[in-house]
Nucleic acid binder design. Structure first.
Lengths: 239, 239
DNA sequence: GCTTGACCCTGCCCCTAGGGCAGGGTTCGA
DNA sequence: TCGAACCCTGCCCTAGGGGCAGGGTCAAGC
């Protein structure tokens, strides 16, 4: 009659799995024939299909064992629960697909949507990729330190970016990275930066937008995050 | 700056998983601070999110390691493949859900749709659950032995069931199970069975519908698959 | 009768992707 | 200054089998 291999084919399961179920006590060992081969009956086949159905649904074998001789009400409740889990897992896999698609480009996986929009804006303005990367890494650090604060800060920063003068300063500061440190434009730029800050402060909404400690960390974390021109500029702005 | 716990929260991963990625060489070990704590940078965060995204998509860590420093074209191809796998797995889970729903009742999980329809027909005719169970188990054994033959046999059997006389005999034979072995109706039934077989044979389409060896196996596999009345009936039919 | 390929047996070690716990040191906020 | 919350290494554990070794068995064809 039924050998282990045939039973395995019937149930869509490997021979090894069947032996495993015997070991775990899920499926009773059948009688053996004269040469020691296991000989199965239709009842084994029925039980095995039940085991396989639950196992393929991700139910741990220990739980399968319980369910095999649970009363119908318990079984019905358990099946509803398992079905729910399956639904969840399908939703998870779908989310995984969505994220996977974003892996090939863009920063949306690493920062909040608001920050990602901000980075896109910078790109639209013609900001260098180097600067964008420094920004991104800074925001990542801020978000890990405190997502709530980061959310507030990005909102402020985006308001700031609405100011044409600030945008101009941002771009010029970005361009200054490559200037020679004795470039005469640095002094002029430093003046405009100071003036702009003074103007903001006079309007009394003077909160520091960037936590300077964090900004420094972000700068340290990347090679090429500063330059001789920027160092000089910083000294000029400080006075 | 970034401790392992914060990094883990940011990436939606456990601390243990991060240490595991270090061991496997997926994520570079960061510098340690004076007390031996790991201190991470934004670059670690970016890489970790990539790892997590792939790992959540079910990519084995060894493969993740390869993909992390693959060229963009290879990566694009790999992502397409992984996405395909994900789609397959979603389809599998959906199938698992469908099968799970059938676990609570019915025989459709265990036999082919044709056999299941046949069993439903028997139920509709008022055949006893005991007989239906014997049929089901017989068909399971036949299907495990040879699905193709079983498909042919069930087609023949269903044709047979279209014959009102055969149906009547089937039902009476079923009912006879509980009769006393000396019941006078047994002899009459045996006659009708013999006549019916004779009629079929004369119409020259005389193929055995049931493989007798298999039928016997099916009968053996179940307790209560025979009775004193049936034993007597068998002797009467044989002559 | 003999061989050959497909089965079957037990027993052993291996894998993935971490989880859990022990036993100890560190940092931070009140 | 103290307790809670972190962090460190090291070790063992898990599910669900896969793979292989080393050996016995069965069925078909020659």
């Amino acid at each position: 009659m039924l050998t282990i291999g045939r039973l395995a084919d019937y149930a869509g399961v490997t021979v090894k799995a069947i032996r495993h179920y015997h070991e775990r006590g899920l499926l009773a060992e059948p009688d053996r024939d004269s040469s020691g081969y296991r000989r199965y009956t239709a009842e084994h086949a029925v039980k095995l299909v039940k085991i396989r159905t639950l196992a393929h649904a991700g139910v741990p074998l220990a739980r399968v064992k319980e369910l095999l001789d649970a009363d119908p009400d318990t079984l019905t409740a358990a099946i509803a629960e398992i079905d729910h889990d399956l639904e969840d897992r399908i939703a998870q896999l779908r989310r995984a697909r969505g994220q996977l698609a974003q892996l090939r480009g863009g920063d949306r996986l690493f920062v909040s949507p608001e920050v990602a929009d901000h980075l896109d804006d910078l790109r639209g303005l013609g900001v260098s990729e180097r600067a964008i990367r420094v920004e991104r890494d800074g925001w990542i650090l801020m978000q890990t330190a405190s997502p709530e604060d980061a959310a507030l800060w990005i909102a402020e920063k985006r308001e700031l970016m609405a100011d044409p003068e600030f945008r101009a300063l941002y771009l010029e500061h970005d361009a200054a990275y490559d200037w020679p440190p004795d470039d005469p434009r640095l002094a002029a730029l430093a003046d405009r930066i100071r003036n702009w800050f003074a103007g903001r402060h006079s309007r009394s909404e003077a909160r520091p937008v960037h936590n300077p400690a964090i900004a420094r960390l972000a700068a340290q974390s990347l090679p090429g995050a500063s330059s001789p021109a920027w160092d000089r500029l910083a000294r000029l702005v400080e006075g």
